[in-house]
Simulated scan of single mutants.
Amino acid sequence: MPEVFDNVNLKLSEGLNQLKPDVQSCAFCVGYLNLRGWDQLADLVDRLQGGTEDAACRLLVGMHRPPEEEMKALAGLKRRDETEEGPMLAQLKHRMTESFKQQLEFGVPSTQAERTLQRLAAQLRARKVFLKAFLRYPLHAKLYLVRRSDPVTPLIGFVGSSNLTLAGLSQQGELNVDVVEQDAAKKLQAWFDDRWRDELAMDLSDTLAELIETSWARTDLVRPYLVYLKIAYHLSEEARQGEREFRLPRIFSEKGTPLLDFQERAVSLAAHYLYRRGGVLLGDVVGLGKTLMATAIARIFQEDDQSNTLVVCPPKLAPMWEQYLETYEINGRVLSFGRVIETLGRYDAPRYRLLVIDESHNLRNREQSATAP
Rank of each mutant, 00 (worst) to 15 (best):
L169S: 01
Y275C: 04
W191T: 04
N17F: 14
R95I: 02
A217G: 12
V267R: 02
P2A: 12
S25K: 01
C29M: 14
L235C: 13
H140N: 08
V30M: 15
L89Q: 14
L117A: 09
W38V: 09
Y144F: 14
Q172M: 11
P319A: 00
P314I: 04
Y275V: 02
L89D: 06
A370K: 15
S215Q: 05
Q241I: 12
G242T: 03
R147D: 08
E114W: 04
R36Q: 15
S13M: 07
D81M: 04
L310P: 09
W196G: 09
V4Y: 10
D284I: 08
R277K: 01
S268L: 04
V334H: 01
S268M: 02
G37H: 13
D46H: 13
T52R: 12
E303R: 07
M202L: 15
D261H: 05
S149M: 10
A294W: 01
D193H: 13
A113N: 11
P67W: 06
L120I: 06
P258V: 07
T52Y: 12
E238N: 10
D22Q: 10
S149P: 03
F28S: 08
S110Q: 14
E174H: 11
A141L: 07
D39W: 14
F192S: 13
G107V: 08
Q263K: 03
L208I: 15
L59E: 08
A232M: 11
S25L: 00
N7C: 11
L260M: 10
L120Y: 07
H94T: 00
V23R: 03
L16Y: 07
L155S: 00
L226T: 09
K11W: 12
F301W: 01
D150P: 07
E181N: 12
L59F: 11
G157E: 08
G37Q: 14
C26L: 11
W321N: 08
R364N: 13
E264D: 09
E359W: 01
T153Q: 00
P87F: 01
D348M: 03
V179T: 00
S25C: 03
S369R: 15
P249K: 03
A185Y: 08
L143T: 10
R364T: 15
D220W: 12
L131G: 03
K186Q: 12
Q123M: 12
R351K: 05
R353I: 06
R247P: 01
E213Y: 04
V334N: 08
L92V: 04
P314L: 04
D54S: 14
A209R: 07
T257R: 06
N17Y: 07
M1L: 10
G168H: 04
P154F: 02
Y137C: 02
E85K: 02
G338S: 13
E210N: 12
G279A: 10
L269P: 01
G345I: 09
